[in-house]
């Protein structure tokens, strides 16, 4: 059963994230966790505030041991790695992974380890290869791997790297991702109700 959506984005990510999140219908209640690369000096809370302006669901910057609630959107704080345990968050200030903190790989790998086949991982626009390994890990443990179509991404390096690293369940234009995720969720909850 699906339990968590994780999203990784870098260059051009803010706009892409806004689009995907606002396409999620109101009844969609999976928590969404985001690692967006940011400048280490960026102001805390800013990304969450910017996203909050675009969508209805609550957007929070993750804190250590904070419980993961349905329908909420969480963003990794700047200059921390965000990790997922079963039902709550953990933070780390370990070294940058491939020059990034937060690292998308770190978030995705921990989500795969904690939620197994209940994870949907999404790689959006970006100018590096962070997230490719994490998405492969999600796929390896039975989760769903989605990648933004590189042809239309603001920067295609990150989607390209993800495509090279794993067999994606779907490679989609940005405007189809939200609805696709919603449909996966509908099917997963339907399966649960009829089981």
């Amino acid at each position: 059963m699906l339990g968590l959506v994780v999203v990784g984005a870098s260059w051009g990510g803010l706009q892409a994230l806004g689009r995907v999140l606002s396409d999620l219908p109101r009844e969609f209640d999976l928590p969404v966790v985001i690692a967006q690369h940011r400048h280490p000096g960026s102001q805390e809370g800013t990304l969450a505030q910017l996203l909050q302006k675009q969508i209805d669901r609550p957007v929070l910057e993750a804190e250590d041991k904070l419980r993961i609630e349905p329908r909420h959107v969480y963003v990794a704080p700047p200059d921390y790695h965000l990790l997922v345990e079963r039902g709550f968050f953990a933070l780390s200030v370990d070294d940058r992974v491939r020059y990034a903190r937060p690292s998308i790989d770190v978030l995705f790998e921990s989500a795969a380890d904690a939620y197994g086949d209940g994870v949907i991982g999404i790689i959006l626009t970006g100018a590096n290869d962070d997230g490719a390994r994490g998405l492969a890990r999600i796929k390896e443990l039975g989760g769903v791997a989605l990648i933004q179509d590189p042809a239309a991404a603001v920067r295609r390096a990150m989607p390209d790297a993800a495509i090279a690293a794993t067999v994606a369940d779907a490679i989609l234009p940005l405007e189809d991702i939200g609805l696709y995720v919603h449909e996966l969720w509908v099917r997963s909850s339907g399966a649960r109700e009829t089981a």
């Binding site: 086949d117 039975g142 989760g143 769903v144 189809d176 696709y180 449909e183 997963s188």
Partner: peptide
């Protein structure tokens, strides 16, 4: 959007 594949069991 097309029909999503079922998540791997």
């Amino acid at each position: 959007v097309g029909a999503p594949r079922e998540p791997a069991g």
